[in-house]
Design a protein around this nucleic acid. Structure first.
Lengths: 159, 159
DNA sequence: GCTTAGTTACTCGGATAAAAAGTGTCCGAGTCAGAAAGG
DNA sequence: CCTTTCTGACTCGGACACTTTTTATCCGAGTAACTAAGC
């Protein structure tokens, strides 16, 4: 799985803590974790395309959350970065074997594909069941200073 | 996820159906699905290293199952091919952020990492809960001719 | 003072390059089966 | 006929290319704010 998922999740949380109506540039979000600016920008673009963030060009531009955190699931972010296709993609090798038919969709009928899909659905179900709001709530419960610290760090950022 | 997982799973099932005490070569297993022989051999080697198959060199050599199918889970095969590391690997970017400490293991304490791990555990749990014996039983229930067809195909294989 | 046009600096966005992982191939080391020779 | 040696072919196993994906970078198009000029 791409490293960008981790960056995206953390950046979304940061965006929620500094929310002031102002947009946050990719450069500032990258500076927070010393990440390569241009590459994080690429990930944020993916989030924007997926409708999780909105982007604004020009001075005072940047990214901001497109909707409240409780409307953004972990699944949404993972799909935005990784794409929608499944990890185990059945290549239908049964079709090449004896008795294989070109007219059968083995992605549906192959028992192995079904078993792998069941596991992947369990994974997706867990991801879809947790919103970023849940994550933020847990973080704030364990580290109450995080919102203020984050906000003030971005406020005091130079250059 | 690597394509080799699909090849490995199907090949293990085939091995169980033709089990006669004889070993099966990578070339024959590859011919069954018209797969590239040398590359399938590579995957089978991984299964052998993981203790799922045993390999024999020389004439009459090849691969055979190292233990009964009901002792082989989908998780075992996936781990053998893909490796044991998690799909979402926390790079601990919190360490590079303000307030980050070099002495904290953020793979454990980071709430995001925990949430992603929970999802991955659900996936692993599903995979570990299904043995190849379960798969075979289901296949034989839906396609009763499979064992005989497979066995006779390998028996009649030329060259 | 207010409006308006022009300029400038800033930001995203996609095009481009480098690195890594995945995919595929080839040849050699070891080994076992079978043939051949000897008893 | 049985045993033993030798040969030879067969198989895995790892080393070596090629392709695709991931990671990272760089500039240009567009935009909004600021400046300054005109009313």
């Amino acid at each position: 799985m791409s490293e960008g998922v981790e960056w995206a999740l953390h950046s979304c949380l940061n965006l929620s803590w500094i929310e002031t109506g102002e947009a946050m540039t990719a450069a500032k979000l990258a500076a927070f974790y010393s990440l390569p600016t241009a590459y994080l920008n690429k990930q944020l673009q993916s989030l924007a395309k997926a409708g999780i963030l909105t982007s604004t060009s020009g001075p005072r531009g940047g990214f901001r959350l497109a909707r409240p955190l409780d409307k953004i699931t972990l699944m949404d972010v993972v799909t935005a970065i990784e794409g929608a296709e499944e990890a185990f993609r059945c290549e239908q090798i049964l079709r090449e074997g004896p008795g294989g038919s070109p007219h059968v969709d083995y992605r549906e009928s192959c028992v192995i594909a079904q078993a792998m899909r069941r596991a992947e659905l369990a994974w997706r179900h867990e991801l879809a069941g947790q919103t970023l709001a849940d994550i933020r709530k847990t973080v704030e419960g364990r580290f109450p200073g995080t919102p203020d610290n984050t906000r003030s760090w971005f406020a005091n950022l130079r250059t």
